[in-house]
């Protein structure tokens, strides 16, 4: 969809869509000599980029192959030996992990923390963003500047007071406490992103809806939400990944029965070496979901990054 009419703040997806195809670089004279130089240059660039790509892929491949080898094999030799001895590859680690009650429980904790924390942020932020973009109330601009300011607040400055507050409320240690904290610290970015996008929706559409007698709530639901879907998708992916990947917040707020995969794995990582089969397998399991999300929604992910922020 095109929201190119919006102000500077309303061009979230536009930036990506207008990206031009790379143009070939040719020398100023365009003769044979410069063509050969250009070809050699491209060849050199290709070689360099290939090396970098290998360097970038190797670490993840290492984890992947380690997760497919037995603990004995991993202790005896490096994962790359599996490339020449494919017989070493086995799914045993994954089977063991799936029969490990603690790990399975942790996996479901991750899901049950991530999904509500994502949905809640999207809903609360959409409401607030609509108010900031299209409703009039005193102090609106100042309040939005507060939201912009809150974008960079480190969680560390809130951990201790919120832990105390949750303790008083009797929810410290539960999944709910982790979810609430994630929602709170996800909101500034979410409101910021959505407000900028909503503000770019053509005014005529809202006017028309108002002419038809639609109230604010109906406009929000049947005009803004459908049109804002790309931004909501970007936000949803970001919030999902941020919560899924978080360790610190869960480490502080979740007790062992509510602990997500990241926290369960970090306690394993304390005795790194002897348990590489559990660690590599668990880590791979924990990163497979973000990777699937990343590859399926890569466009929205990139748009989210371009919208000016990353967690």
């Amino acid at each position: 969809m095109s929201v190119a009419t919006g102000g500077g703040a309303a061009t979230v997806p536009e930036t990506v869509e207008t990206q031009r195809p790379p143009k070939r670089v040719t020398g100023p004279l365009g003769g044979w000599g410069s063509r050969i130089t250009a070809f050699l240059n491209r060849g050199l660039v290709s070689v360099v980029l290939t090396l970098i790509a290998v360097f970038w892929l190797l670490p993840t491949l290492g984890l992947f192959f380690s997760s497919l080898r037995s603990a004995q094999d991993n202790t005896a030799s490096g994962w790359w030996n599996a490339l020449t001895a494919p017989a070493q590859l086995t799914l045993d680690n994954y089977q063991n992990l799936l029969s490990n009650e603690g790990m399975v429980n942790a996996f479901f904790n991750t899901v049950w923390i991530t999904v509500p924390a994502t949905v809640l942020v999207v809903v609360l932020a959409s409401l607030a963003a609509y108010a900031f973009a299209w409703m009039d109330f005193p102090g609106r601009d100042w309040l939005f500047i507060v939201v912009v300011g809150l974008l960079v607040v480190p969680v560390q400055v809130a951990l201790i007071p919120v832990a105390g507050l949750f303790g008083d409320l009797g929810i410290y240690g539960t999944r709910l406490s982790v979810i609430l904290f994630h929602v709170a610290f996800g909101l500034p970015f979410a409101v910021f992103l959505l407000r900028n996008f909503f503000a770019g929706v053509p005014k005529e559409l809202l006017e028309a809806a108002r002419m038809d007698g639609a109230g604010e709530w109906r406009i929000f639901r049947s005009v803004i939400m459908p049109l804002g879907l790309p931004a909501i998708a970007s936000l949803g992916i970001f919030q999902f990944l941020w919560v899924w990947n978080d360790m610190l917040i869960a480490l502080v707020f979740a007790d062992s029965s509510a602990a997500p995969l990241t926290v369960a794995l970090q306690s394993q990582a304390r005795q790194f070496g002897s348990n590489i089969d559990v660690l590599a397998t668990g880590a791979f399991l924990s990163l497979v979901v973000p990777l699937v999300v990343f590859f399926s929604f890569q466009r929205y992910f990139e748009q989210g990054v371009l919208a000016g922020s990353v967690k």
């Binding site: 290492g62 660690l279 880590a283 990163l287 990777l291």
Partner: peptide, 14 residues
Amino acid sequence: AISFLAAGIIFRVV
């Protein structure tokens, strides 16, 4: 897209 934790374990192996 992956967590710091997973990246940390990846590099412990490296």
